[in-house]
Amino acid sequence: MRAVVQNGYGSAAVLRTAEVGRPAVADGEVLVEVAAAGLDRGVWHLMTGKPYAARLALGRPRNRVAGMDVAGTVAAVGAKVTRFAVGDEVFGVGRGSFAEYAVAGEDKLVHKPAGLGFAQAAVVAVSGVTALRAVRIAGRVRPGQHVLVLGASGGVGSYAVQLAKASGARVTGVCSTAKADLVRSLGADDVIDYTTTDFADSGQRYDLIVDIGGRSRFARLRRALTPRGTLVVVGGEGGGQVLGMGRTLHALALSPFVRQRLTAIVAVPGRADLETLRGLIVSGELAPAVGATYPLDRAPEAVRVLEAGQARGKIAIAIGARIPNGR
């Protein structure tokens, strides 16, 4: 089968398309014929081996197939799988989704809504679950609160804006000039262009700040919070190249000594969260924002776009014939 693999850590240049064997399926696993895969920052971290602690944990990649987010059709099921059958359309998280076939644990998949395209379904799991946990679990958003989303035009941010809005909050998104229209289309009540306006100096105070960009100092973030507000640090961006946990540890260490609540998340997608997202998609409260779709052999180009911060919403990688190739 065709797949995007890497033999070492580095830039997008380490990625190449190759013929590899179809993955084997264990008793509790599902083999998915991949229609589309999603691109997220986790793929970039695994490609580059940054933070460097990841290299110690993972070792040297050898023909490792890239990709985690997946959508497609069940091609085979393990002996202990009970929730899926051959022919079911599914989405979730698998191993090596930048390929014609990928394997996923049964508890990492849910059925794809009938009205949702494969490219849209492919970009839900990783970023959607991260946003769900940031806004509703760690952030404890409530109706009537004012929420600020830093990095509102990216993968996680595009979901965070919608989830906060669906929870009854007033939402302000921070993004660049070129992406302001996207953030408004996601439901943001207000948009701050970071190229012209500093959110921390606007005088506005927020009940919840979801910090996805990882570039703002904690003093500035806290200045924009209400006295009892909550800051949620998402992921390891800006956390250092060795451990990648600098901002997370800083937030958790500082929180007991201030009135504001400072916390962080590292989300691991599972069935319960995926079912929640599926329900929100079916109800119309959540819609994946796919800004571009690339064919499998252009996956390195897609990664470069993500790395440069040029992605609008999510990027999908088309693998199956049912997804139009190209942007």
Rank of each mutant, 00 (worst) to 15 (best):
D190I: 05
R228G: 06
G115V: 11
G115E: 13
G67N: 04
A24D: 11
A13C: 04
R312V: 07
G168T: 12
A251W: 01
T196N: 14
S167L: 07
T293D: 02
V103R: 00
V174R: 00
T17P: 02
V126P: 00
E275L: 15
D69E: 12
I319N: 02
R133M: 11
V81T: 06
A287F: 04
G203Q: 10
G213D: 13
V5K: 08
A169V: 11
M1W: 09
L163E: 02
A18E: 14
V141N: 01
A219T: 15
P269A: 11
I209Q: 01
G168W: 06
V141Q: 00
V305S: 02
I323Y: 01
V147C: 04
R142E: 13
A166P: 05
P300W: 00
N63G: 14
D107N: 12
E301R: 10
V268E: 05
C175R: 00
G92Q: 06
T130W: 03
A308I: 10
G270H: 06
D27I: 08
V234F: 03
A102G: 05
D190W: 09
G155F: 01
E307T: 12
A166D: 15
V290A: 09
L150Y: 00
L116D: 12
V156H: 02
A122L: 11
A289Y: 02
A308L: 09
G213P: 01
L306V: 07
E100I: 06
V191Y: 01
T248L: 09
S216R: 07
V110Q: 00
Q120V: 08
A75G: 13
V30S: 03
V191S: 07
T293I: 11
L148M: 06
P143E: 12
V242W: 14
L58R: 14
A302G: 07
V43C: 08
R215P: 04
I209K: 00
R64E: 15
A114I: 07
V5D: 05
K165V: 05
P324V: 05
D190K: 15
K165M: 09
R83A: 13
R327C: 04
F84R: 08
A102K: 01
P324H: 09
G42R: 07
G203L: 11
V110C: 04
L116I: 13
H250Q: 14
G38W: 01
H111T: 07
L262H: 01
A13G: 06
A321C: 03
Y52D: 12
R83Q: 14
M47H: 02
A119V: 03
A224D: 01
G144K: 09
G213A: 14
R220C: 04
P324N: 12
E33V: 03
D273Y: 03
L132H: 07
A26L: 13
G246N: 06
V70I: 15
F98N: 07
V70H: 07
Q162G: 13
G154T: 03
